[in-house]
Design a protein around this nucleic acid. Structure first.
Lengths: 173, 173
DNA sequence: CACCAGTAGTTGCTTTGCGCAACTATATAG
DNA sequence: CTATATAGTTGCGCAAAGCAACTACTGGTG
């Protein structure tokens, strides 16, 4: 078999990986064929790795802080409820993500001019710098942590994940 | 490029899905190109869906209970530390997953004959029935929740996820 | 055979995560 | 003017996860 000509992503799967795999020497029953198992397991490892990378920053310890920082940096005046929708969290949860970022001086809350109930969120200079740092960390993780996927194969995996994500979001509405 | 040779899963993605996507009308910055974003988001939705499906069972509310039930059903006498390795949790966490299953009468703990420090875990009749029910729920979710992936495409996505999972696990050791 | 380092599992503590209900303030429809 | 809906906050409770300390047992070594 001409292993060398097989695209990298496919090469990663030797024929025997399609046979039953074992985790720590154990078969995992129906979970071996379950998308949910792999997605859930991957999440756990990826999140741990990311958490390690941001441990020294104010966005550490919390799942939505990175997304929030980037959104506020990109959309001055964005409202918490919009962030909540992206994060798929309820408003209380989102408020509690924003609180420490405001306290740390990365984000400013202002009462919206058009709607006195709503807040507009704005990045500060300090916050903008943090956002830049965060962007680089995300890019680093993508490169370093997912280094086992050959550069030309990333597109394929990415497209599949993106499609799954978009489809799954539709299910929620 | 010979598009016809491209695996089916890639066909799911129309060209315009490769353009910038928006979530709730917003662009998500570098996260749009980040594996971690999609993996983490998918996890959240998949886990919620699974949680809903098992809400009426004793394996509800907890991430490792399903895996534990299946492992104990398949490997009579298995030890908590082995389960911990599969779950990638520490032993205290694993013990706390097992506790309620023992209390509910699905699993029996026995002191191992060879090693008096260790416990062997055994399924009960009630537990075996629960395991069967759980297997069906997992299969149902795979079919119903991931119904947007064409049957012939599932293999490809599965292989990529499996490969990512196996590679990522290696990173931990 | 006494000692000691290592391992299995448990308990306690702390921090975070996350959904729900209740509350205040404002907006909007009738 | 009143009723209903929406934006955001606060309080609460429960589950998750990491860490340290503890008990109990093992297996190797002097």
């Amino acid at each position: 078999m001409d292993q060398d000509r097989v695209p990298q992503v496919l090469k990663m799967h030797k024929p025997d990986e399609d046979a039953q795999i074992t985790i720590a020497g154990l078969h995992i029953d129906v979970l071996e064929g379950a998308f949910s198992w792999y997605i859930r397991s991957l999440d756990s490892v990826v999140s741990q790795d990311l958490e390690r990378r941001i441990a020294h920053l104010d966005v550490a310890k919390g799942k939505g802080k990175i997304t929030t920082m980037l959104l506020v940096d990109d959309y001055p005046g964005i409202r918490p409820s919009q962030i909540a929708e992206v994060l798929m969290r309820d408003r209380p949860a989102t408020g509690r993500i924003i609180d420490p970022l405001v306290k740390a001086g990365h984000i400013r809350r202002e009462i919206s001019a058009e709607d006195q109930r709503a807040h507009g969120l704005f990045i500060t200079q300090k916050g903008h710098e943090l956002a830049q740092e965060v962007r680089q960390i995300i890019r680093d993780q993508e490169e370093e942590f997912f280094d086992f996927i050959a550069p030309e194969d990333r597109q394929d995996f990415m497209r599949m994940l993106k499609s799954a994500y978009l489809n799954v979001r539709k299910k929620l509405k």
